[in-house]
């Protein structure tokens, strides 16, 4: 820390990345951003960090965001359907639509 070509650059960076990590976590996108200090001489470390992070992201599964990109009901409900707990005070579920078409 403080060992930066841009003087205080890494101080700023760490704050900003921490900020972004917290914000993404708040929205439900945890663990998809990572910061590491690697000098241009540390090729081994660079490879290690990238490899580890790639594995970590792979373990998180596919990016959930594209599911929201289509103007189709399915896009919304598929994600809302999963892991959607009941909230206190919410209305009881509507009875399923009866088949009016025999």
């Amino acid at each position: 820390m403080g060992d930066c070509h841009y003087l205080y650059g890494n101080y700023m960076t760490i704050k900003r990345i921490t900020f972004l990590q917290e914000l993404l976590t708040f929205l439900g996108l945890e663990g998809r951003i990572h910061l590491a200090w690697i000098s241009s001489a540390e090729a081994q470390k660079f490879v290690q960090v990238v490899t580890d992070f790639t594995e970590k992201v792979r373990a998180l599964g596919p990016n959930p965001l594209p599911t929201f990109s289509h103007n189709k009901k399915a896009a919304l409900s598929s994600v809302l359907g999963r892991g959607m707990g009941k909230t206190p005070g919410s209305s009881p579920p509507e009875p399923a639509l009866q088949e009016v078409y025999p």
């Binding site: 003087l7 760490i14 960090v49």
Partner: peptide, 24 residues
Amino acid sequence: SPFNILGDSVTLEPKPIQLTGTDS
């Protein structure tokens, strides 16, 4: 504000990668 001047000290560490924890 800390957003338009440079900070001169920071005590934060970057969050480690939980999978391996190899990061400093």
